[in-house]
Computed example of a mutant assay.
Amino acid sequence: MGFYSKFSEQDLIESYKNQLDYQGKPDQEIINEILSRGSLEDFQDKIKSQHLFLNEQNRLIREIHGHYMNKLSKQECLSLLSSDFLSDKTIGILVNTKYNQIHRKVENLKVDSDTLMFSIFGTIVASVVSTIVILIVLYKFIFLSVFAFGLLIPAYIINYWIIGLFTGKTRDNLAVFIATFIATLLNCVYSIFLINYS
């Protein structure tokens, strides 16, 4: 049994393509495995078909993105798309998937009044909660006080998580990113204040 005998067809294709990319030609062992499963020409035709399929899929994705940004509905977008390689059902799934992904991304980046309000509220709550958590950790594990500034990393993560819960958005959103940074600065202020007055 050769090295490639347990490879699935897709794994064999990927290995073959990698060898072409990095070595300029496939080694004899992979050629032997391909020939044991059929002809080299059929195998290369499958690679070409996959390449054409991926190119066509990427072309459609670019068009879908453009139609979304031009504020066309899914139905309008579907009526404008056609393909020689992909079925109408596959195009429909692609449109639904991409419209939903793009919509989530656009909504996530949006900074509206609700996002600002929840970010401010989240900043206050997150900074207090993360400071309490860090102080409890320092109290329980006093030896960690040597790494006090290093504890700002878990504080940042706690802050981001809480602010994300309040806003429903990720750090890609500018308001969430700034709010998390401010909450972490507040951790420093609270900690210094508590240390000086304890």
Results as ranks from 00 to 15, higher is better:
Leu80Lys: 15
Leu94Met: 15
Ile157Thr: 05
Arg171Phe: 14
Ser73Glu: 13
Val137Glu: 02
Ser79Leu: 09
Lys140Leu: 15
Leu109Val: 04
Cys77Asp: 01
Tyr156Leu: 12
Ile142Asp: 11
Ser87Tyr: 03
Leu52Gln: 09
Val106Lys: 05
Gly92Arg: 05
Glu33Leu: 02
Lys105Trp: 08
Met117Ser: 12
Lys48Tyr: 01
His65Gln: 11
Phe149Glu: 10
Thr170Glu: 12
Ser83Ile: 08
Gly24Gln: 10
Leu81Asn: 06
Asn32Thr: 04
Leu151Val: 07
Asn96Arg: 07
Asp112Ala: 06
Phe118Gln: 06
Phe121Met: 14
Glu29Asp: 13
Leu80Trp: 00
Gly122Thr: 04
Val137Met: 09
Ile124His: 07
Arg59Phe: 10
Lys105Ala: 14
Lys105Glu: 15
Leu81Ser: 06
Asn70Ile: 00
Gly150Thr: 05
Asp27Gly: 08
Ile93Cys: 01
Lys110Ile: 10
Glu29Gly: 03
Ser130Ala: 15
Gln23Phe: 15
Lys105Thr: 14
Tyr160Ala: 12
Gln23Cys: 10
Pro26Gly: 09
Ser87Met: 07
Ile132Glu: 04
Tyr139Asn: 15
Tyr68Gly: 01
His103Leu: 09
Glu107Asp: 13
Ile120Tyr: 01
His67Pro: 01
Tyr68Ile: 03
His103Phe: 08
Gln44Gly: 00
Ile124Asp: 08
Ile93Glu: 13
Gln23His: 13
Glu107Lys: 13
Leu78Phe: 11
Gly66Leu: 06
Ile163Lys: 03
Asn100Phe: 06
Arg62Asp: 14
Ser113Tyr: 04
His103Met: 08
Leu152Tyr: 10
Ser39Pro: 02
Ser83Thr: 07
Trp161Ile: 02
Phe143Arg: 00
Gln101Pro: 00
Gln28Asn: 10
Ile124Gln: 04
Arg62Asn: 13
Asp84Pro: 03
Ser73Met: 08
Thr115Leu: 05
Arg62Lys: 14
Val106Tyr: 08
Val146Leu: 10
Asp45Pro: 00
Lys169Thr: 13
Ile31Asn: 04
Leu40Lys: 11
Asp27Glu: 12
His65Asp: 13
Glu56Gly: 07
Leu40Met: 14
Lys48Gly: 00
Ile132Pro: 01
His65Ser: 12
Leu52Gly: 00
Leu60Val: 09
Leu35Tyr: 05
Lys140Tyr: 04
Leu54Thr: 10
Arg59Ala: 08
Asp114Glu: 13
Phe166Ala: 15
Thr123Gly: 15
Ile163Met: 09
Phe85Met: 07
Phe149Asn: 11
Ile64Pro: 02
Leu152Thr: 01
Val95Tyr: 07
Asp112Gln: 04
Leu116Met: 12
Leu165Ile: 13
Gly164Leu: 04
Ala148Phe: 10
Lys105Arg: 12
Val128Thr: 14
Glu76Met: 05
Ile34Thr: 02
Cys77Trp: 00
Asp88Tyr: 03
Ser119Arg: 03
Gly24Trp: 12
Leu80Glu: 13
Gln101Phe: 07
Ala155Ile: 02
Lys46Thr: 14
Asp84Arg: 09
Glu56His: 10
Thr115Ala: 14
Val129Tyr: 09
Asn32Gly: 05
Gly122Val: 05
Leu78Lys: 15
Asp42Met: 02
Leu60Phe: 08
Pro26Thr: 11
Asn70Gln: 12
Tyr156Cys: 11
Leu35Trp: 02
Val111Gln: 03
Ile153Val: 15
Lys46Tyr: 01
Asn70Asp: 14
Leu40Gln: 05
Ile124Met: 11
Ile64Lys: 05
Gly38Ala: 06
His67Thr: 01
Leu86Ala: 04
Gln28Glu: 14
